[in-house]
Write a protein that binds this DNA or RNA. Structure first.
Lengths: 125, 125
DNA sequence: CGGCATCCCCCGTGATACTG
DNA sequence: CAGTATCACGGGGGATGCCG
């Protein structure tokens, strides 16, 4: 739809580059997948869920995504402190993409589904 | 769908992390979007399409993805040399995900479509 | 034209310790 | 428990030059 504003594919790729900026960073996607599906997790839960990440990185990536409007930070004014994270509506909008990525990842180990690896190296004249 | 094999979300996220490895790198996605839709581009065409990337990075990312079986390298034994790149079948399988990402990127500037930004900061008890 | 090698620098990333 | 601060390191990534 809206072919009139479809512009060239190059522009589309160009536009995506902007959006990609928000997902750059070694842990962004990983975290996002943890929050995938509207889950609300505490800081410590995320830490446990992603053992390989350092506290510093977790905070950093979380903060960035918060600033980008992808994740929401919910502070509970209690003691001990309790902070939860979840996707914003815009972040939720990423779910289809995240899901597609999931499909792809799954397909990788389920040959025949997408019948990859069917091509052979061919060198043109 | 397929709730039975949905296992825990954690496992899913875990699996994705593996697949994500293939897409890590500042330029992978950008390049992929350039090849999106089955396009076959020459090395120099990719260079022009992505001015911000250095030749070194372009080669590097391309080679990695080639090794990962995401893109195919077609060498034309001519002079002057001519090398083309395109997605492998598995790479093509990424298109749905890429497209979803495209949708997301577009939605960012088209509020009302996914009605993002409808939430308000809420601090639990 | 396509691609590799080299040099070099910056920042992303990690480990540790400290605060509220 | 959540988050900050500081230090230190490695390699990601840029610029340049040479080769097939």
């Amino acid at each position: 739809m809206s072919k009139e504003e479809a512009l060239t594919p190059s522009s589309a790729a160009d536009r995506v580059e902007q959006a990609l900026k928000f997902l750059e960073g070694r842990w962004k996607l990983v975290i996002l997948f943890r929050l995938f599906g509207g889950k609300v997790l505490r800081f410590s839960e995320l830490e446990k869920a992603i053992p390989a990440i350092s506290q510093k990185m977790l905070i950093q990536q979380l903060r960035q995504m918060e600033a980008d409007g992808i994740v929401r930070r919910i502070v509970h004014h209690q003691v001990p402190p309790k902070v939860e994270y979840c996707l914003t509506d815009w972040g939720q909008a990423l779910c289809p993409a995240l899901d597609a990525l999931l499909q792809w990842a799954a397909a990788r180990e389920r040959p025949g589904e997408t019948d990859a690896r069917a091509q052979s190296a061919r060198s043109a004249s």
